[in-house]
Amino acid sequence: MNFRSACTSFSAATLALAAFLPTTAPALSQDRTRQDRPGQFDFYVLSLSWSPTFCASQKGDGNDQQCGATRDFRFIVHGLWPQYEKGYPDFCRTDEPDRVPRSVGQSLFDIMPSMGLIGHQWRKHGSCTGLGQREYFAKVREAFGRVRLPTDLSRGETSVTLSADEIEQKFIAANPGMSRRGISASCEGRRLEEIRVCLTKDLQFRDCAEVDADGCRASSITLPPAR
């Protein structure tokens, strides 16, 4: 298992249940010889998905909460993932319930538009943070607010095509303290899939060699319009 497949290699069948989890090709290895324990990790990755890319491949698949005719999401939170310097923990044992109550999840619908996504992110990643459910999702909200979205990218009114470096540079320009070694753009074919930003445990920007090396290698990437 690797960094990408841990968080983005969900099957289409699972996507129908989770309502949002994009896929990418495997790249980095995960060390499964150690036991993952809540709270024992090095930093976070905030994964911001470009919703129009996901929705372009999901027509008719029952993801109306995110991709319905009245929905026009742009960047949304795929997840806030605890990471080791190499690899990541997942599905940690915790005293918290596996199920996330709707009363907790619905407050996140503006940035994580389905209970399937919210529940999966808690079980696989939130459980390893050492935080309770409410604390974890408050951290997700705080992390999302920490990153300024470049206006010309996040507007989503028309299609935009740039190189991965140009997309990353726009985020860096909008976020003082962010470096090119602390952000990675991933793609689905030649469409932007996600922006991954590395953050310390107190949500300061930091470098992350493994995540940075796992970026898109396409010569140009398109952000499809929201509508």
Rank of each mutant, 00 (worst) to 15 (best):
D95S: 12
D61T: 11
V45Y: 01
D36Y: 14
R34Y: 05
S57A: 14
D98W: 00
F75E: 09
L17H: 07
S103I: 05
F75Q: 07
P26C: 08
V45M: 05
D36G: 06
Q58R: 13
K59G: 03
A27N: 14
K59M: 04
L17W: 05
F54R: 10
R34F: 07
R102P: 00
V45I: 11
A56D: 14
Q35M: 11
A27C: 15
P26S: 10
P82W: 13
F43W: 04
R71W: 06
A18I: 15
G87K: 10
H78I: 00
G39A: 09
G60H: 13
D90S: 14
C67G: 00
D36R: 03
F43E: 04
W50A: 02
F91L: 09
Q106E: 15
D64L: 07
P101Q: 03
L48Y: 02
Q58L: 03
L28Y: 14
A69Y: 07
R93V: 03
R34V: 11
D64H: 03
T24R: 11
G87D: 09
E96H: 04
D42H: 06
C92G: 07
V100C: 12
F109S: 00
T33F: 00
D64M: 00
T33D: 02
D31C: 05
V77I: 15
F54E: 08
K59S: 09
G60K: 11
L28K: 12
L108R: 03
P52C: 04
D42R: 00
I76K: 10
F75S: 08
R71I: 05
V77A: 05
L80M: 00
P38D: 15
Q58T: 06
D42K: 01
G60V: 09
Q65L: 10
D61C: 03
T23M: 10
F75N: 08
R34M: 05
R37E: 11
K86L: 10
Q65P: 01
A18R: 15
N63C: 07
L28S: 11
D61K: 13
G62T: 08
C92R: 13
S57T: 13
P22L: 03
T23E: 15
P38G: 12
A18T: 15
D72C: 04
A27V: 12
G39P: 01
L46M: 04
